[in-house]
Simulated assay, not measured.
Amino acid sequence: MRLLSFFLIFFSVLLSFAQERNDLSAAHTHSYVKYASYKAMLNSDRFKVDSIGFFIDKNKDTLIRVSGNNFTNGIRVAYEEKDAAFLDRYKAVVFNATHGNENDIKNARMRYWKDEIKVYFDSTVPSKTVREMKKVFKLLDKEVDSLKIKTVNRRDQSNYFIYYVNRPDAIDWDKRITGKSDGGFLSWNGKQQIYNTTIKINSQMIFNEDEQLMTLKKHFIWSLGFFYIQPNQECESFFSSCVYVDKVLTEEDLALIKYHYSYGICKGTDMETFEEQHKSAQKSKRENSKNEHYFIHYN
């Protein structure tokens, strides 16, 4: 039976060493899955349910403990550990943890592109701008795992549309973008996967070509995760709210994007879940340095 799309969170893999025999291969794995996902697994003999292994999470979802060693249909990736300073910056950018109000932080989710980004540039976009943006695409496509970007020649082939408003009678293609000078509109599904984006630049209000390019780059970086721009970052960073024409994709910017697209973390979670997973993994590591933690991702 084809399993529904979900991921299993491996809180730990406990390495067992038998006293009466030298068996280094013995290992036990367990995971917690939502009840809806568990129902999709009932006809599979690869899993068994722990009779006391369930609890109710903060969203009142029933999470059931399952165990087994043969997860052949999923991709298993080791948990990616980061220090506290990095995680604080990541939470600020993804969940607005530093400057957001309580309600905004609670409702924020880790959003990302799962499918390849296919960019179509409208004819209103200057050719020089297109060339410079393609350099950004090439860098990100090369450096960031599981993030794929390419340009296409027809709008109906795209899931990412970029256009300029160059004159008073020009077509403003996307009325959902409320910004007069620039803006973007993202669409995502219930799994927090972004599947469509439109970016607008109004060159009648942003006259400087370098500023137009910087603004377009800023919107593109933002659209990779519906990221929150921060007031306390260095002006060079694309995650900084500082208006600065010579922004570059800094090493810290790239590290955040790489981490966001790493399969060594969960996808689509809220901040509370994100923190709980890290605390659980780090506590288990402190208790036993041999403990290993994995995420199983299903397409």
Results as ranks from 00 to 15, higher is better:
189 N>Q: 08
226 F>P: 06
231 P>H: 12
188 W>F: 08
198 T>D: 10
214 M>V: 06
201 I>C: 02
204 Q>K: 14
205 M>V: 11
198 T>R: 01
226 F>A: 15
206 I>R: 02
228 Y>L: 12
183 G>C: 05
198 T>H: 05
209 E>Q: 15
187 S>M: 15
207 F>L: 15
230 Q>Y: 08
222 W>I: 14
195 Y>S: 08
228 Y>T: 10
209 E>P: 10
214 M>T: 08
208 N>C: 10
205 M>R: 09
191 K>D: 07
216 L>A: 07
189 N>T: 06
217 K>V: 14
221 I>C: 04
226 F>H: 14
200 K>H: 12
217 K>R: 14
188 W>A: 04
185 F>W: 15
198 T>Y: 06
188 W>Y: 11
230 Q>I: 09
201 I>K: 00
216 L>Y: 04
210 D>Y: 08
186 L>A: 09
201 I>A: 01
186 L>H: 05
206 I>F: 03
191 K>A: 12
200 K>N: 06
187 S>P: 08
195 Y>P: 00
192 Q>V: 07
193 Q>I: 11
206 I>D: 01
213 L>W: 03
230 Q>M: 11
216 L>W: 01
196 N>P: 05
200 K>G: 01
191 K>V: 07
197 T>L: 04
188 W>I: 05
205 M>G: 06
210 D>A: 10
205 M>C: 07
202 N>A: 09
220 F>Q: 02
192 Q>P: 02
187 S>E: 15
194 I>G: 00
183 G>L: 01
218 K>M: 15
222 W>Q: 15
201 I>L: 06
197 T>M: 06
223 S>K: 01
212 Q>Y: 06
227 F>V: 10
207 F>W: 11
220 F>D: 00
222 W>G: 13
190 G>H: 11
196 N>D: 14
204 Q>A: 11
225 G>C: 07
210 D>I: 08
202 N>R: 05
183 G>Y: 00
195 Y>A: 07
217 K>Y: 12
231 P>Q: 11
206 I>K: 04
221 I>M: 09
202 N>Y: 03
190 G>T: 13
203 S>V: 02
214 M>S: 13
197 T>H: 05
205 M>I: 09
219 H>V: 09
211 E>W: 09
216 L>T: 01
224 L>Y: 04
183 G>K: 02
195 Y>T: 11
198 T>K: 02
206 I>L: 11
203 S>H: 03
228 Y>C: 08
192 Q>K: 10
228 Y>M: 09
213 L>R: 04
230 Q>D: 14
231 P>T: 12
204 Q>T: 12
214 M>W: 05
226 F>T: 09
185 F>N: 13
229 I>N: 13
210 D>P: 09
231 P>K: 11
182 D>V: 03
222 W>A: 13
211 E>P: 04
203 S>T: 12
220 F>T: 01
215 T>F: 03
217 K>G: 07
213 L>D: 03
221 I>Y: 01
230 Q>G: 08
190 G>W: 06
229 I>K: 15
200 K>I: 03
199 I>S: 00
229 I>Q: 14
230 Q>A: 09
203 S>Q: 02
197 T>A: 11
204 Q>W: 09
193 Q>K: 15
191 K>H: 15
205 M>E: 14
206 I>Q: 03
224 L>T: 03
